[in-house]
Structure formats: C-alpha cells, structure tokens
Design a protein around this nucleic acid. Structure first.
Length: 287
DNA sequence: CAAGAATCCTGAATGC
DNA sequence: TGCATTCAGGATTCTT
C-alpha cells in the first residue's frame, strides 16, 4: 500500500527514534517475504554487532545504513510491499502477528518489521554499491529531486503508447508513485488517466510533473495516506486521506466543476477521473 | 514494446 | 450468524 509519502513518513519516524546502539540480536520469522531474484539472499546476519547510521529513501525503498565493528558500511534495504509496517518496541512487548524481523539493539530497544501479506522484503548488502545494483539501479528519477521536470518524463514516454496512468506506476519511469498519487496527480494536471503517453504535449508534461511533486509533498506533510492499513512507526494512521480530491470518490461530485467523478478499470487496477476536466483527446469518438 | 493474467499473501468488507 | 466472494495503496514473471 505504501507509496512514496508513506515510505518517507516511516523513514522520518525511524530517524526520530534515534537508534544508535549496535545490534545485539537478530530474529527472523520462518516465513518467506518478497519473492524475486533481488530478494533471494537476505544476508541479515551481517548486521550482527553493526551500528545503525543514516536513513535514506529512494522511491518506495528505505535504505538504512549500518556500520559493522570493523567499519564496513552496510545497507539494510526495506520495501513495505502492500502491508509492511516498521515499529520500535521494547523486548518485553509481545510480537504482534506477522512480525518477520526483529533487530534488538544494545540499548534494549527493538526494530520490528511486520507484514501480513508478505509482499514486502528486507535485504542487506554492502553500502558501497547499493545504488549501482538492482533493484535501486533500475529505478527512474526521484520525483522530489530538484532536477525533476516534465522533460524527464517526456524523455522516457513521448514515444510510448502506454496509457499515462500505467506509465506512472512503472518504477522505471519515475520512482515512488503508486495508484493513489498517480490518480491524484493526473486529476490535478487535468490529464485523462487512459490517454496514451505519446499524446501529451510539453505543457501537459510540465503540469504533470508539477502535480506529481505537489501531491507527493502534500502526502508527506500530512503523514501519508491511510485508507485502511498504513501506520507510521509509532502506530498512527496518516491524515492525507482527507485531502484526496478524486481517489475513492467515484460517483461523487468533482470539487471544481461538480460533475460526477467516473471510475474506470484498466490493467486490473481501477481509478477515478473527472470526465469534464480530464478529457481524452481521441478515443472520445471511438467509444 | 505493451497489455493482460497469474502469482506471491492476509484481512476487511460485502453478498447471500 | 456463518460462509463464500471480492478487493486492496506493489511488483515480478509469463503469455499473447
């Protein structure tokens, strides 16, 4: 479930926890987490004795730097999947169901990773090359970088016949966007979600890039979107769900023009748009 | 290259 | 009340 703003909220929550003591114990459930070739080897035992350092985020990934006793920097890579949660707890607190990883630190606190659906994953690698290796090396540009512009999207998509909503969900096109924020950004940019990417003009790419930045920043400011499951590090839901303009509002009036918002289904994922403000250039005649 | 389906799972909500 | 079905914010892999 978590998209960039939710992952960023979790990252900030972990920063707040100020964990600096070395890892004294590592517990891992017996369940498999995320499948796929980049997640086969978790290497978690490398963290034994290592001290937690800086926390970064790239797309929907959390990158937590650890330093081993002989000063080797490691990266704990965390992906929350659909239902992953991170928390800090005390050893005497019982593990809630679906807890899959517990790192116990020397100050008697624990980092815990909980994930009912187990689409999330954890992995340790050396820090040095983490950005050069998959999965991070395959990610598209970071939308909150100052360099992020409409031209960056156009560069990748102006020849593409894919529909723009699906393209935005592709992490190789741009990192961190999921269905909610894609739908919100397209509404704000007044672009029909099912239009072919190649049909967008430069002005539309610029509007889209600005809208993406806006919806993501707003999501972060309000602690992420909690439709159902999302909780931050201290177990609280986000507040951004109250600020969504279209997602989950099918059949309700558009806040701008009062037209009834329409839902659609494409590629197994549904979405919402305003049929009056997000016009589809060509297929209006076809259908 | 692109679209769709199947897949990895649980749990909440909905339908009968 | 209980049981079955449907759906969810993700991502990969295979098929068409």
């Amino acid at each position: 479930m978590p998209e960039l703003p939710e992952v960023e909220s979790v990252r900030r929550g972990l920063v707040e926890a100020k964990l600096t003591a070395p890892v004294v114990n590592i517990w891992r459930s017996s369940y498999k987490l995320r499948t796929g070739k980049h997640w086969q080897t978790e290497n978690l035992t490398l963290l034994q004795g290592a001290r937690p350092k800086q926390l970064q985020r790239r797309g929907k990934y959390i990158l937590w730097q650890f330093e081993t006793p002989n000063k080797q920097p490691l990266a704990l890579l965390i992906h929350l999947g659909m239902s992953g949660r991170c928390g800090v707890a005390l050893p005497e607190q019982a593990k809630i169901v679906h807890t899959h990883l517990v790192l116990r630190f020397a100050d008697d606190r624990e980092f815990r990773f909980i994930d009912p659906r187990r689409f999330g994953g954890v992995r340790v690698a050396t820090w040095e090359h983490i950005f050069q290796q998959p999965p991070l090396s395959e990610l598209g540009p970071e939308p909150l970088d100052v360099a992020f512009r409409g031209a960056l999207l156009a560069e990748r998509l102006q020849q593409s016949s894919r529909c723009i909503r699906d393209a935005l969900l592709d992490q190789q096109v741009v990192a961190g966007i999921g269905n909610i924020y894609a739908i919100e950004a397209l509404y704000q940019a007044k672009i029909h979600p099912l239009v072919a990417a190649r049909r967008l003009r430069d002005s539309a790419w610029d509007r889209l890039a600005k809208a993406i930045v806006h919806v993501l920043q707003q999501g972060i400011e309000h602690g992420g979107t909690t439709l159902k499951d999302f909780r931050n590090v201290v177990g609280q839901p986000g507040k951004n769900q109250d600020r969504l303009l279209v997602y989950g509002r099918a059949g309700k009036p558009c806040f701008h023009c009062k037209e009834s918002l329409e839902s659609f289904e494409h590629g197994g994922r549904n979405g919402v748009f305003c049929p009056r403000e997000q016009v589809r250039p060509r297929s209006r005649w076809v259908e």
